[in-house]
Design a binder for these strands. Sequence first.
DNA 1: GCCTAAGCGAGACGGTACGTCTCGTCTTATC
DNA 2: GATAAGACGAGACGTACCGTCTCGCTTAGGC
Lengths: 208, 208, 208, 208
Amino acid sequence: MAKTEAALDADPPATRKRGRPVSAQARRAVLDAAVGLLDERGVGGFTVDEVARRSGVSKATIYKHWKNGFDLAAAAYGDIVTTAVPVKDTGDAVDDLGGQVRRLAHFYASARGQVVAQLLGAAPSHDQGTATLRDTYFSERRAATAELIRRGQERGQLRPDLDPELTIDFLFGPVIFRMFNGLGPLKDTDARTVAEMGMRAIALRTQP
Amino acid sequence: MAKTEAALDADPPATRKRGRPVSAQARRAVLDAAVGLLDERGVGGFTVDEVARRSGVSKATIYKHWKNGFDLAAAAYGDIVTTAVPVKDTGDAVDDLGGQVRRLAHFYASARGQVVAQLLGAAPSHDQGTATLRDTYFSERRAATAELIRRGQERGQLRPDLDPELTIDFLFGPVIFRMFNGLGPLKDTDARTVAEMGMRAIALRTQP
Amino acid sequence: MAKTEAALDADPPATRKRGRPVSAQARRAVLDAAVGLLDERGVGGFTVDEVARRSGVSKATIYKHWKNGFDLAAAAYGDIVTTAVPVKDTGDAVDDLGGQVRRLAHFYASARGQVVAQLLGAAPSHDQGTATLRDTYFSERRAATAELIRRGQERGQLRPDLDPELTIDFLFGPVIFRMFNGLGPLKDTDARTVAEMGMRAIALRTQP
Amino acid sequence: MAKTEAALDADPPATRKRGRPVSAQARRAVLDAAVGLLDERGVGGFTVDEVARRSGVSKATIYKHWKNGFDLAAAAYGDIVTTAVPVKDTGDAVDDLGGQVRRLAHFYASARGQVVAQLLGAAPSHDQGTATLRDTYFSERRAATAELIRRGQERGQLRPDLDPELTIDFLFGPVIFRMFNGLGPLKDTDARTVAEMGMRAIALRTQP
DNA sequence: GCCTAAGCGAGACGGTACGTCTCGTCTTATC
DNA sequence: GATAAGACGAGACGTACCGTCTCGCTTAGGC
């Protein structure tokens, strides 16, 4: 397709704009400061003023890049989860999904996991908040996980009647729920139990 | 000492203290105003100032009863969930739990359900927030649901190896997760599917 | 008249309001800080933020008392002119007015005089600015000076056809004009000359 | 290219330097936009950003020509006063000066007059502000008016002991003062009165 | 029937973040 | 080499809410 060859150099030259280009350095400094602040004080202690102070970037510039504090916090922590809990595909969907649940629960029990939980929680109180999170946090990971499920179905490891998206909610929902119901993050042993329960519902050959 | 004689009429019942008694009317007015405000504007638009304005009760009085705005909001919406989605025990644990999941999902899809989700979400950003919610929202319902599960186990309807508490997280987690991941509340048909998936993992006589 | 006796205690009791009374101390601290800041940096360096910082009074409180920075600055410097250049009435209107012109010119040549000039100048760029100055700075002094002129007319020292208000503009206008036209404040000798010119136009027996 | 031939009618005296020549057109566009903005919004609503937007000239270029916003505003309105109130010399200094006072008062009562007053007022708050105004607004007109006075003295129409510069402050000061003291611009009848008062102080043949 | 606590409405207060604005500088690519 | 476009650091603006703190008034039991 023409797209393949042309796409590479078609846009970039046209993207060259007239004025002073956006400072990647400023952007980086803001994100770093935001991560540091979230690490130290969580969402409750996160303020744009403080990010500006730490990063040396002016508030005006920050608000030019992110439409509000929540948007910035979400972006700053954007790839934390992905990095901390990468989606793996070893060929055994049951093992992969179960491990994924356990690793995610483990992450949410960590300091950064708590912050991510605060971010998830804050989303519904902000305009477009959950949409922002969907695009920033979940979109990519869900796509990869859905693919994992689909391949598991093709291999005959998972029930063929599963809706991949619903299955994701089904498997990981309990992990997130624990962040909000006052019982605290799932402990590793409990996470293992929950993962096993989930597997019983979706795997093909697991009747005890 | 007065204490000595007072022992006769016991402390709890004769809590009659000196000064002017707490105004139950003020308390009621505040809670009503808070509910109205949450209904109209959600958690994002909820302010103690506005509650004081609407209720005609002074801020000082409000803060005497509730330790902060979140605490008030939680208390105001306290029995909304319980009232909207009562726990039923018909003798068939599988049916009861499945229905519970579906009814809860249906509630969370409603306007007030969204507000409850915002409250859950806001909890981790407040000191003692999740503990408050645990006591206000979940404690009673979880106890009832755990009892349901235990009876189901005794009757042989549910697997005997289930940890009731974990099972609750497992069943209802997916419903809550959907409030935060940007995909929107579960639709009724999807809720039914999720409930069925859950049942496969916990019921004894599951058809493959 | 009933008014005479009743007036004294009629209002005061009614003035007792319900809530926490306005803190005279906070008000004083703000005005003192504002004067200090104007002294140090002039109108150009005057900011409400800095006043709040110096006075220890919160911005919210400041904005509750004064509707904007200009209003505060005007109030803070309110009686500076009156104190620095009191209106005197010795019985000789010509001497009094001439002296007044000279003293006013002398004041405007001082550091605080320059600041007052900046305030006058800034007024037309603010909503209701000149009206604020009229009430804060000029009203009282003009009334006293107009009275001086009227008495001078009665005593036959000043022309009887003078409009007191216009006469005030006529006499003091040149002093103010010099603050804006780039020639700098009037020097004492020039102020004397200008005062004499003015007197020639308004005194009755002064044809040389 | 038009550019090549254009060299013929381009200012020949201007030294042909390397690179792109200074755009007289840009300069004109900026001044026009500035005048329009001052007309519409006054000094309070005047911003360099908006001038740049309207004129299509970049801020950097604007700041290359004028050292700050005030400087630009002053330059833009530079010849407004001169054009609106030209200095006339008919041979009768008393008539000329009196008329000048009246015409100036009339101008200051107009919309553009108010803007000029705002500019005068803003000057002391800017570094070198009054000096800028002196050179831009007053210098030429004062020179012409001083010449008028000097000729009046030579003709025996005005007192010979007058200092021309001081006399200018004396005559026109009241007109400007009214722009700042909250009483509003002089009305025509009052301006006539003020002019007559001034003449009594400087003319030789004054009727008592 | 006073007395003396509380509880209460009103509302001012210190603190502090919000998101916006303007200033004057700077950094590119273009003319 | 002068421009247009426009991003940037600095920092003030006025508003909003938080939770605390006086006040003066109201309502009760204790004396």
